[in-house]
Design a protein around this nucleic acid. Structure first.
Length: 426
RNA sequence: GGAGAAAUGGCAGAGCGGUUGAAUGCACCGGUCUUGAAAACCGGCAUACCGAGAGGUAUCGGGGGUUCGAAUCCCUCUUUCUCCGCCA
């Protein structure tokens, strides 16, 4: 969530930047409410502190009197103490209420877009900043990946329906091996780029969901194991970033770079149509995620570095790709700026999102209480970033579609060392 | 899953109702000494909020309670350890 000092110090700027993502919302009113509540909080806190101070004072005196054997005098002071206890108690209650109200507003307020983020409502307002990669052309009619998957016996969607439901495919044979090869390739590339690998838990508690911003807003997107109060992770971002919850870092620990492979679980309530065909949108999918914790002054540079990393992966895989700078309206709740990567699906004749790289600035850090101590001993919120590098199913879809030949499917050179075959035949 | 024990500062570890925000040791930082280092000695060393400051408040796993007063007593949750059972 955004910080009070941001609101205090740059309110006008915030209001303007918020317009990029929610033009119809009266942000100024909300921010004023927060400031107003903060004033109330301070004065209530002050009153309460004063009363507690007096009560502490009295308690000490009573203790002293008891020691000196002056029970009666001590007894007299108790009534004032009881009075203070009562009124400080009710002040505590109203303080709690004020803080709850304030948090309620702040919790539901998304991050402020950076100045360079284009204003816009939805994905049609995203800005294409770059196109790159290998274009594939065909002397025949290319087939969509779900037909190829079936023809070459790589993925069984029906079987997944039987076992779990729609959106849970079963990868088989070379399909499964290709999946595993991609995971290893992505992890190796991340490691070469300096990201330390972790294998995080795949279920997280509520505090973790709140830390990275999935909760309380997006709880409908996550699978919830009510019995145990746990959530299946929608991305490794959640457990990996939460490694640094309630942590105070030292300067010399930067930059922090982690990568992780994990399955991701999403309920995807409300999706339908061609969007969900084949591998396009699943309830369970695999992803390699990169996560960084940076000092504020370095986070923008880190984002560009992550962008090049992802770009490098797509180039190595030989996929026709493009980068979008997301407009305000398409930005995730916690993001200040996001690049989306899309690959061209030859047979579906559409672009598929395969990565999303974001700078969250101090938005998550504020919720996570993730800080660092600078040279003069002051603690400051760190910046968090993450990106997919990469999400597997759509990459697999694009590989099958773009590398298909009339009688087989070719394999990109970079994956061959990870496989004991160099093409897929019937 | 059953039975017990425990949770205190960066770590170790006292304290079990009244100047205890918390002894002591280690670690760490500054200084004296030394050609330099070690040792020794002196001093400092939690976090958050309010306040110009003096200072105040809160925090001894989390939450609640008893009391004028709780790290200390009670309830509850969580976690860890030991034993038994079960199991990849």
């Amino acid at each position: 969530m955004i910080t009070l000092s941001q609101i205090r110090e740059q309110k006008a700027d915030l209001i303007e930047r918020y317009q990029k993502r929610m033009a119809d919302l009266d942000v100024e009113k909300l921010l004023d409410q927060v400031l107003e509540l903060d004033e109330q909080r301070k004065s209530t806190q002050q009153k309460m502190d004063d009363e507690l101070a007096e009560a502490n004072q009295i308690a000490k005196q009573i203790g002293q009197l008891f020691k000196e054997g002056k029970q009666e005098e001590a007894g007299k002071m108790k009534s004032r103490a009881a009075e203070l206890k009562q009124s400080s108690g009710s002040l505590k209650e109203s303080l709690q209420k004020i803080e709850d109200q304030q948090r309620e507003i702040l919790f539901h307020l998304p991050n402020v877009p950076q100045a360079r983020v284009p204003k816009g409502k939805d994905d049609s307002d995203n800005e294409i900043t770059e196109e790159f990669g290998t274009k594939h052309s065909f002397s025949f009619e290319p087939k969509p990946h779900w037909e190829l998957a079936d023809e070459y016996d790589l993925i069984d969607f029906e079987l997944g329906v039987k076992i779990s439901g729609a959106g849970f495919p079963v990868y088989k044979g070379k399909g499964a091996k290709l999946q595993r090869a991609l995971i290893n390739f992505f992890l190796d590339e991340a490691e070469k780029a300096g990201y330390a690998e972790v294998i995080p838990p795949h279920l997280v508690n509520e505090a973790s969901g709140i830390g990275t911003g999935q909760l309380p807003d997006k709880d409908a997107q996550m699978y919830h194991v009510g019995e145990d109060g746990l959530y299946l992770i929608p991305t490794a971002e959640v457990p990996v970033t939460n490694i640094y919850r309630d942590v105070i870092l030292k300067e010399d620990q930067f930059p922090i770079k982690n990568c992780a492979y994990s399955p991701c679980f999403r309920r995807e309530a409300g999706s339908y149509g061609k969007d969900v065909r084949g591998l396009n949108r699943l309830h369970q999918f695999d992803k390699v995620e990169i996560v960084r914790i940076e000092k504020p002054e370095n986070s923008d540079a880190a984002l560009e570095e992550m962008k090049s990393h992802v770009q490098g992966l797509l180039n190595k895989l030989g996929l026709q790709s493009r980068i979008l700078l997301l407009c305000g309206g398409d930005l995730g709740f916690a993001a200040a700026v996001t690049y989306d990567f899309e690959v061209y699906s030859a047979a579906q004749e559409r672009w598929l999102e395969v990565s999303s790289v974001s700078n969250f600035e101090s938005f998550q850090a504020n919720r996570l209480k993730l800080r660092y101590k600078n040279e003069d001993g002051k603690s400051t919120l760190a910046h968090t970033l993450n990106g997919s590098a990469l999400a597997l199913p759509r990459i697999l879809a694009a590989l099958l579609e773009n590398y298909q030949q009339e009688d087989h499917i070719a394999i990109p050179d970079v994956l061959k060392p990870y496989l004991n075959f160099d093409k897929i035949e019937k």
